[in-house]
Design a protein around this nucleic acid. Structure first.
Lengths: 214, 214
DNA sequence: CTCGGTGTCACTCACAAGTGGGACCCCTGC
DNA sequence: GCAGGGGTCCCACTTGTGAGTGACACCGAG
């Protein structure tokens, strides 16, 4: 059930994590992949619930790996393995749905925490700049960190996003909020920019991953 | 942080739950609302993380209550209070984003479980017919129950849904999967029907609430 | 064997969505 | 005082989406 796959270009990192996991009962079957291709093959077979992914994966890159992964194993929660300094790769990964991140030097306790919590936590987007590089259990990463570093949605933008997630059209959202459809479109445009979404479907996905909406 | 609001038409049910919660430290501030209007006012003030909602709420009904609630308190996880027999109201509520359900005769332990887990569990959609009426911690309600009772998406439909959540257009999804755009549209149409979604944004929201995608 | 579900592709059509401008008001902070 | 951000509305435009069909092939269950 709680299968874990680690995908990292460095053999030493893979081995460290596999060996580290040996002492953790929850992590039972940890498998290793050296490339995006291997990851896809493994993920298709094992349907893991957690994937630890190299943020500096060569070849197609981590973003493409996550895209492919999400197609063969959509249930998999992705945790990015990145140094505290590599914030750009991290941001891209988070935008694509990563659930948190760790450094490759992760210890046993951190791995156990991941196994226990990652797939039951709705949103884990710690502050990259603060180098808070551990996946924390619950409410920690919620309000304060998020509001400072990530683009904050205004009340209106959030209301529009909620309407979108409930399948309401711009016109209907306008009626709900006593606004004109054009105003709703303006809020939609701004929240797309803030979230880095290209359309409302992706905006809803990003909003839910970040815990902005339920 | 973990505020709880119970909204139920029956005063006895409200009081039962408020009194029951007194012994549970995690439930600290449980407030009661008798109607959707009261709920909205309370939720706006308290920003609760959990709302226990009467499935047979009169006046505007539970669905409308959830819609309004999601606009004043989008973070709130909704748990529906329904008898094991009332499966229609339940289904509608789940489609709108409810995170689980309980009977109004909920006991102290169940309330505590809700407080501890609801807002950190990604998806709780137990089998209505099986009268499994407790919110369970983790993986329980995931795979087996879901696959039997809820509409199951085919591999293709799931792949299309994933593409949608990544902000890809039908044409792009077609390229990703080596399909024509028309085929993608067909899969989209069928998955909309299965999920009860009116557009791709809602389909993504429902898919994420049910844990079909991340 | 038949039927239902799935996968594939095609066509049309109305309309929603997304994007680019511009405009005005209000408030807050420098 | 003025810049900036938010909130509101407007116009115009291009694109994509969603709805409604029809069609054919495959496969597995009954």
């Amino acid at each position: 059930m709680a299968g874990v796959v680690v995908c990292h270009a460095s053999a030493s990192v893979r081995e460290r994590i596999v060996v580290t996991s040996l002492g953790v009962p929850l992590l039972a079957p940890v498998r290793a992949a050296a490339s995006a291709d291997e990851l896809v093959v493994l993920a298709r077979r094992l349907a893991p619930s957690v994937v630890l992914l190299d943020a500096d994966l060569p070849a197609p890159g981590p973003a493409e790996a996550m895209r492919r992964l999400s197609q063969v194993a959509p249930q998999a929660a992705v945790v990015v393995l990145a140094g505290a300094d590599d914030s750009e790769a991290l941001e891209r990964a988070l935008a694509l749905g990563a659930r948190g991140f760790l450094t490759p030097e992760v210890n046993r306790a951190e791995l156990a925490a991941v196994a226990a919590h990652v797939h039951s936590v709705s949103s884990l987007t710690p502050t990259p700049a603060a180098s808070a590089r551990n996946v924390e259990p619950r409410q920690q990463a919620a309000a304060p960190d998020t509001e400072r570093t990530q683009p904050v949605l205004t009340r209106r933008e959030l209301e529009v996003l909620v309407g979108m997630s409930n399948g309401r059209s711009n016109a209907q959202i306008g009626q709900d909020l006593y606004l004109s459809e054009d105003t709703v479109k303006t809020h939609a445009r701004r929240l797309f920019r803030k979230l880095g979404a290209s359309d409302r479907a992706q905006a809803v996905a990003i909003g839910m991953r970040r815990g902005l909406i339920q």
